[in-house]
Every structure is written in C-alpha cells, then in structure tokens.
Nucleic acid binder design. Structure first.
Length: 287
DNA sequence: CTAAGGCCCTGAGGGC
DNA sequence: TGCCCTCAGGGCCTTA
C-alpha cells in the first residue's frame, strides 16, 4: 500500500536513472493504466517519445517526472498495488506489466521503466505543469494538499482545518485535501503514537493535541522512509523489486488481537470507511 | 462549504 | 481438488 514513504522511495530510486534519459519507445499493454490520461494511449505515447526526463518530484502519493523543454510531466499514482520498476531492456515482462517506457541514459545505457499494477487502481498520464508558488505541479495535483514533510506545509492551517471539522480524525487524516501522503497504515500508526482514538471528532481535539499528532505523523513517516517503507503483501516494492522493512516496526496496523506494545491491552480491529482501523482501546481512549 | 457512503479492481487465502 | 466468499484500500464521485 504505497503511501508517502513508499512513493518517496520509488521517486528517489527512479531519479538517477530517469533524469537525463531520452524516451525511445513507449508501449501501453493495458489502457486501464491510463485512466488519468483522458486523451488515450496513442496521445500518451506521442507526448512522450523523443522527449527527455528532467526531474523526479513528489507530493503526497503522486509522483511525476517533468519533461525537458516543455510545460508537462509524466505523472504516476500507484494506487494500491502499482509498481515502478527499473529493468534491463531484455528483461521479460512483469506479471502485471501495464506500460513499458524504454529509455536511453548517457551513463546507464538502455533501461526500461516498467509500470506494473495488480489491482489497476494506479495509473500514469502526461499532464501539464502549472505554477504553484515557488514550484510547478501537474494540474491533477493542484487540489492535493502539501504533505507533512514538505517545507512549505502550513502547520497552523492544518491545526485549524482539523479543529473546524466534525469528522472522525482518521477520516480527516485520509483526506488528501487537508494533508497528503497519509494512508490507512500511517494514519493508524500516527494515531496510536499520539494516543488518539480514530473516531475522535476533529473539532473536539485541542490545538495542542493536533500539533502533537502532526509531530507523530512526521516521526512515523520519517522512520518508515528510513526503513524503505512498509511491504505487506509483496505489492509494494522499490524500483529494484525489493521490499521495505517497516512492517516489522508497526505498533497497531495489522496487529488486531495482539498486545499493544505500550500498555499490553489488546489491539482492536474494526471496520472503518470500507477498510480497517487498528487501535488500542486502552491507551487510545474515546473522548 | 462539510459530511457520508459507494465504487472501481484483482488475486490471495479461508472455509467447506 | 475446486468453488465461493471475503478482504485489501486510494482517489474520485454522488448525494444530502
């Protein structure tokens, strides 16, 4: 489940190979991988072939590779199971390969950037870049809030936004228009660390509690990033196909029925927004 | 504007 | 062995 740390690992892995690479060929095996590209596969290919990647950027769970001498970028969202893999040109097709981008790099030679995706919630697109303060972002990312490791993230505005809402704090954390990059795993982990029950209404939290939660979010994300992200079911891997290690460090997520590492109470798992919440009913008291 | 719920999709795994 | 059911969940969409 790629959230901010996993997408950042992919972005950082892609950067050295992609930046400066000339796109020599693009193959779309499955058009469902282009749901974010409205004008179809032929247009997608035409807008990439012959171009050169000039960067590797990310906001929240979106990543994009700006194209040289242009106002556009290849954007990617991995959804639940999307992978961006670096392969040699002669490598056999991946099991769920959807799109292949053949490139040529001055130092690394010929490479293939492969987009594979089992559950097809992820997709690629070529999108125009627009100004956003000091930076430029794809039009499809304009509505996405800055993520908590973005230097321009506005802590004060976040605290106000949370305290204005009556929704459950977990739902607020999953709203990419309030704070981006946090998904189900890191929402549960951050709430556990801050000792906040996931159903607590945002408006009932003190400014101090929200600030503490934000600090815990940053701590959890940084630790996960340092460990290469969370790999649960072999869906998330880095550009070389390797798993991350953070699954071993989880305190709440996926640990329903097991003792809370902090107080020994049993972690509860319950349905929430068509997914699951994991929390300790003993040290994350409902208010 | 906020809030709440549903849908898209595939493969793994459990039960019988 | 095989069939059926449930589950995983990010982003977007609809409805109130």
């Amino acid at each position: 489940m790629p959230e901010l740390p996993e997408v950042e690992v992919v972005r950082a892995g892609l950067a050295p190979a992609a930046i400066g690479s000339l796109i020599t060929a693009v193959t779309v095996w499955d058009e469902r991988a282009l749901t974010r590209h409205a004008s179809g596969a032929a247009d997608f290919v035409a807008r990439l072939e012959g171009r050169t990647f000039a960067g590797a950027e990310r906001r929240g769970k979106f990543l994009w590779l700006p194209l040289a001498s242009g106002e556009d970028a290849l954007i990617a969202h991995l959804g639940m199971s999307g992978q961006m893999l670096l392969r040699t040109p002669d490598a056999p097709a991946e099991r769920h390969e959807r799109i292949r981008i053949d490139v040529e790099h001055a130092h690394h030679g010929e490479l293939a950037i492969v987009f594979a995706d089992q559950r097809t919630f992820g997709s690629l697109a070529v999108d125009d870049l627009v100004a956003d303060g000091p930076s430029r972002i794809p039009t499809q990312v304009v509505h996405i809030a800055r993520d908590p490791i973005d230097p321009f993230f506005d802590d004060r505005a976040f605290v106000l936004a949370v305290r204005r809402r009556n929704s459950a704090i977990k739902r607020i954390l999953l709203d990419q228009q309030v704070i981006s990059g946090v998904g189900n795993i890191y929402a549960d982990e951050s709430l556990w660390a801050a000792r906040i029950h996931p159903e607590t209404a945002g408006r009932t939290l003190s400014a101090q509690a929200v600030a503490r939660l934000l600090a815990e979010i940053r701590t959890v994300l940084a630790k996960a990033l340092a460990e290469g992200g969370t790999s649960f079911d072999a869906q998330y891997v880095n550009v070389n196909g390797q798993a991350g290690y953070f699954a071993h460090s989880l305190n709440a997520y996926g640990r329903g029925g097991q003792p809370c590492p902090r107080c020994g109470g049993l972690i509860r798992r319950e349905a929430f927004m068509n997914r699951s919440s994991h929390y300790c009913p003993r040290c994350q008291r409902r208010r």
